[in-house]
């Protein structure tokens, strides 16, 4: 049961939140020009890493704001939570790759 730092409300119990999968997957524009494969890539395919993962969370029972988190899927360590408009914080130990 995590403690999650809502960028707006601060540290809160995980049961106030819900996770909505991988972050930073923008909706394509001009979708009519996409092939089925390209569309399928957007709708169905996710990275599912063993390691650091950027994901989207909602503070359901709190301020009802969406935000992003950088979480390690093995240790469950939240390296950072950040607002939608914020730059991506770097992944630890990867020379600042974001």
């Amino acid at each position: 049961m995590f403690i999650i730092n809502c960028p707006y409300c601060g540290d809160r119990d995980q049961t106030e939140f819900s996770c909505h999968g991988e972050a930073h997957i923008p909706r394509p524009t001009e979708t009519a020009k996409m092939t089925d494969d390209e569309w399928g890539e957007y709708v169905f395919f996710r990275t599912n890493p063993k390691g650091y993962h950027r994901e989207r969370w909602l503070h359901d029972h709190g301020c009802r704001r969406w935000f992003n988190a950088l979480r390690h899927t093995v240790t469950d360590e939240f390296v950072a939570t950040y607002k939608i408009e914020d730059p991506r914080p770097p992944i630890p130990g990867e020379g600042g790759r974001s």
Binding site: H20, P26, R27, R56, L58, R64, R65, W66, I84, E85
Partner: peptide
Amino acid sequence: MSWLEEWLQTEWP
């Protein structure tokens, strides 16, 4: 409600 808010906050802020 969540559907609307998610699109508004994350895709069309």
